[in-house]
Amino acid sequence: MSELLALNKAIRALDNLWPLLQGDEQEAILQQRNRLNQQADELAHKSLTAVDAELQAAIDQLIQATENANEIRAVIDWRVERIEKVAATVNSVVGVIEKLGQILARI
């Protein structure tokens, strides 16, 4: 990380220098700045893609917790569905009883 910080610092110093120069001198400093910028970019990318074992274990653990939460949610959804089905069944049975009642009342 200190290497990246040093590169950034050098780039900023060159950026405060080259606008004051002209011609070949300016071009030479700009090229140097571009080279450092590229190095810094690669280093930053390397740091951002590095995954250590401890982090990977934590990510896996959190993915597992997420899966558990999703599974329990599915079970709860299924239970709610059953409550809804019971309510719907009671309703339809009542409908049948109502019709039966109407027939019996006419006899």
Partner: peptide, 16 residues
């Protein structure tokens, strides 16, 4: 400072 310092430095290059 990977993201933060790079963003700051890159914007500085544009300003130059």
């Amino acid at each position: 400072g990977v993201i933060e310092s790079r963003l700051y430095t890159m914007r500085g290059s544009e300003l130059a």
